[in-house]
């Protein structure tokens, strides 16, 4: 099977969805690029290259916008309400701050407030997360915040294979989907089939299987946790590693079944702790699997602070192998 980067896997999903369904279009800042300039329009394909090549094949369905995030999301929501399948790009998840109303008060609520009579099959893509020394306004995960809004589906792929299948599911889904691409993983490769395939929402992936500890990780923390678990296997510690892949809907059963078997739970996410995914899942386990637990649940996440700029600070800020290892061992102590 061919190896592809996560960037190329998402790009391939977009091309295939557009080929198959002419109601799909992409919209955002520089998703084509070079509009109005002397350069070749379409030669940019998004600042991370995820929409590369789309303009040259479908110039009418690859739409560059001014820097206007509210209008981008709003336009995607409106087009979706009347039957299109837009895939909008918001360059950095942090810019949700600019378009929060259109996401949270508008697209998330249409179906419910309109008595189930509407569909809003829009996908909003974001690059997300830390690791680039990009500081407080270009490093946030944001998916943990958006997970708390009913009406939105929230996807966080951790590898190229999942990213393609989840993107094709997102485009076919009739509800609004927020798709968070951990930008540190864009260049990471995996085996990705050339043909179209979908991965259902709400179905976790068991990245590793083991008996001693259940580890749940999200996005860029999945490969980090996997590396830790592989190292611990040599010490005779075996762990389940669960990647929920979608935080809304969440595959609660997969997590609970694993916790019931291992009796120990470590949750790893790159976002700050308060009202985040680690607390959410710790609450779930405490509520529904309390009697299976043999040790306190451990949460590994960023501290309650913005993302710092300096590389040393950011390295200390983000969960790393050392912290994940310590948490797993703590549950076994």
């Amino acid at each position: 099977m061919p190896e592809k980067t996560m960037r190329d896997a998402i790009n391939e999903a977009l091309h295939q969805a557009m080929e198959q369904d002419d109601s799909v279009f992409v919209i955002g800042e520089d998703v084509a690029g070079c509009n109005g300039s002397a350069g070749d329009v379409g030669s940019v394909g998004g600042v991370f290259g995820v929409t590369s090549g789309i303009y040259h094949r479908w110039p009418d369905r690859c739409i560059d916008t001014p820097i206007s995030e509210s209008a981008i999301v709003g336009a995607a929501a409106g087009a979706a309400l009347v039957g299109m399948r837009p895939v909008a790009e918001i360059m950095f998840a942090d810019f949700i701050g600019v378009c929060m109303d259109q996401i949270v008060n508008q697209m998330a609520k249409f179906r419910y407030m309109f008595g189930g009579k509407s569909r809003c099959p829009a996908v909003i893509r974001f690059s997300a997360g830390g690791g680039f020394s990009a500081a407080g306004q270009h490093s946030q995960a944001m998916y943990q915040v958006m997970t708390s809004f009913p009406g939105l589906k929230v996807v966080v792929p951790s590898n190229a294979y999942d990213a393609k299948g989840l993107m094709l599911s997102a485009i076919q889904d009739d509800d609004p989907v927020l798709f968070f691409e951990p930008k540190i993983l864009y260049q990471e490769t995996a085996e990705v089939p050339d043909e179209m395939y979908t991965i259902p929402f709400g179905q976790a992936n068991f990245v590793r299987e083991g008996d001693d500890v259940t580890v749940v990780a999200f996005g860029q923390m999945v490969p980090k946790a996997a590396a830790v678990i592989d190292a611990l296997a040599e010490e005779g510690i075996s762990c389940d590693l669960i990647d929920p892949r979608t935080t809304s809907p969440l595959d609660e059963n997969a997590i609970l079944e694993s916790v019931e078997a291992t009796g120990r739970l470590v949750i790893v996410d790159e976002a700050p702790p308060r009202c985040g995914l680690t607390a959410d899942i710790a609450g779930l386990a405490a509520d529904k699997a309390f009697r299976s637990l043999k040790a306190p649940i451990k949460q590994v996440c960023a501290p309650h602070s913005p993302t710092p700029f300096s590389p040393e600070l950011e390295a200390a800020y983000l969960p790393d192998a050392e912290k994940i290892t310590a948490a797993i061992k703590a549950t076994l102590a």
Partner: peptide, 13 residues
Amino acid sequence: YYSEHTSINYAVG
């Protein structure tokens, strides 16, 4: 004249 890779001729209506 530009915002990232887009010309003002395009982005300012």
